[in-house]
Design a binder for these strands. Structure first.
Length: 474
RNA sequence: GGUGGGGUGGCCGAGUGGCUUAGGCAAGGGCCUGCAAAGCCCUGUACGCGGGUUCGAUUCCCGCUCCCACCUCCA
């Protein structure tokens, strides 16, 4: 059994065979950093992070490129609105995005190139398209891709150019030969920030929206590579235009197109332009931890629609805490056990187009067995379950014991709190020994007021910190 | 108008022509506990609507309906 992946270009699930044995090159269309990131962006980040981890588990050395598009119409408009350089906007949002990825445990890409760092590659690519008769230069110094020169145009997104609706809010560019032609290079406009331009063979200007991805895939992954990923919402026009210009330039380009589903908000897409966005700060205000968000984003299949709601998010958080609770209790009983082999159901599920819902089901079954082993005191079984659970959680980026999810100060504080709690528990145990339940319960209530939850186990009492969402510690 | 994806039990969310059926959350019952918490066991309520194929369809086919996305900037 090997990995099978759904490929948008062929609309089918196919065996994933790397171009070069033992290696995989992935390009993920990152974000246009026009505004702070929302959890729709994080879904994309988490989905491809899981794909990457799975490819690595399958023994592939993954080169993972995730770009930053740091110049486009929206960024420039915002710069004008705020009266600051466009690149300060892009940089500010890029940092927020990286922090957010970091918070939800998305591993660093192999490299994260920026569009504006690749102007020479764009020029080379554009010149190549002009030379091959797939692009033309207008009197205004703009360069357009000639869609009519590329018969495959529309194949990726299933669109037929003749049947596409011609509705554009923008006034049509007068020099375009065909409304579908798209800009490779845009000329200087007096209404735009004047620090947003570079010299080019066709006059001063700036890149069109799609050319940066073609340039950066070329630079970092070569003319042909394994997987191109991105959100389904940019399949057209962005990916269609990308594949057109790259293939017209003579490149093999992406062998697999992977598209993740959207994250909706009350039935509508979460989108910067609609303004219904939720980011990490809002979730933190609801007491949702980043790991719980990651669980929520990773548990449904990556191609399905997630209709965001706090109710569903709370359910995921509860499910994650169940798994986390097992790991904590297991470690208390048998000590830290390294991540071990994962169960066959998990592997089968992940190989089947990353069927994370089934993978999570497999995880929960092992957790249940592990809990039963804890109850029966079967330490060998506990250790085995812990190893398997950690193995699976690691591949999903959710291992509570990974350094990722440990709050910086918590370890130091923990031993301090442990000593204080031990005193209180000693008093409580004395009271319990004398069957003085009211005193025993009073101690437990006091600790609860302080946010420390006490549970009695066959091995004696244990304590945990109350979740932030529970309001009992006020 | 064109293209694609969907409507599964109280909620989230897989899956399959019948055979044991996901898994989680919530609910009820039980075990455990001084009580609790956690955990374990058990329980119920499903496959948008109407036809068809079939011994048998939630799963295949047809029609209908509703929802979403894309065709315009958006992961």
């Amino acid at each position: 059994m090997s990995l099978q992946l759904y490929d948008t270009a062929t609309r089918s699930v196919r065996d994933f065979v790397p171009r070069e044995p033992g290696k995989a090159g992935i390009y993920l269309c990152g974000v246009t950093v026009q505004s702070p990131p929302h959890i729709g962006h994080l879904r994309s980040g988490v989905n491809y992070d899981v794909l990457r981890r799975w490819l690595e588990y399958r023994g592939l050395a993954v080169r993972f490129i995730r770009n930053i598009t740091d110049i486009d119409d929206k960024v420039l408009k915002r710069a004008l609105d705020e009266g600051v350089p466009y690149w300060s906007i892009a940089y500010r949002n890029e940092r927020l995005l990286d922090d957010a990825y970091d918070a939800v445990g998305v591993e660093l890409p192999t490299y994260e190139p920026r569009a504006t760092g690749h102007i020479p590659e764009m020029h080379e690519l554009i010149q190549r398209l002009i030379d091959r008769g797939h692009a033309y230069v207008t009197d205004a110094g703009e360069v357009y891709f000639d869609v009519s020169s590329w018969p495959e145009y529309g194949a990726l997104s299933g669109q037929k150019p003749d049947e596409m609706r011609r509705q554009s809010s923008e006034p049509p560019a007068p020099d375009k030969r065909n409304p579908l032609d798209f800009a490779l290079w845009k000329g200087v406009k007096p209404t735009e920030p004047q620090d947003a331009y570079w010299p080019s063979p066709w006059g001063r200007g700036r890149p069109g929206w799609h050319i940066e991805c073609s340039a950066m895939t070329w630079r970092y992954l070569g003319e042909e590579f394994d997987i191109h990923g991105g959100g389904r919402d940019i399949q057209f026009p962005h990916h269609e235009n990308e594949v057109a210009q790259s293939k017209a330039a003579g490149f093999g380009f992406a062998r697999f197109w992977v598209h993740n589903g959207p994250l909706n908000m009350a039935g509508e897409k979460m989108s910067k332009s609609i303004g219904n966005v939720v980011g990490l700060p809002e979730l933190a205000a609801h007491g949702i931890r980043p790991a719980e968000l990651r669980y929520y984003l990773a548990a449904p299949h990556y191609r399905s629609v997630i209709d965001f709601s706090y109710e569903a998010l709370e359910e995921s958080a509860a499910a994650y805490r169940r798994v986390e609770g097992f790991v904590q209790r297991a470690v208390e009983q048998v000590g830290v056990v390294d991540p071990g082999p994962v169960c066959a159901d998990f592997v089968t599920a992940m190989d089947d187009d990353l069927n994370t819902p089934r993978a999570f089901a497999a995880l929960h079954e092992v957790v249940r067995d592990g809990n039963a082993a804890l109850a029966s005191g079967d330490r060998t079984a506990v250790a085995g379950a812990l190893a398997g659970v950690r193995g699976m959680l690691g591949l999903l980026g959710l291992d509570p014991l990974s350094t990722l999810w440990r709050e910086a100060a918590s370890d130091d504080l923990r031993s301090t709190v442990d000593k204080l709690v031990a005193h209180a528990l000693e008093r409580r145990e004395q009271a319990r020994a004398g069957r003085d339940w009211s005193t025993a319960d009073a101690v437990r209530d006091q600790l609860k007021q302080a946010g420390v939850l006490i549970e009695d186990t066959p091995h004696g009492p244990r304590w945990t910190l109350a979740d932030d969402t529970t309001d009992g510690s006020s």
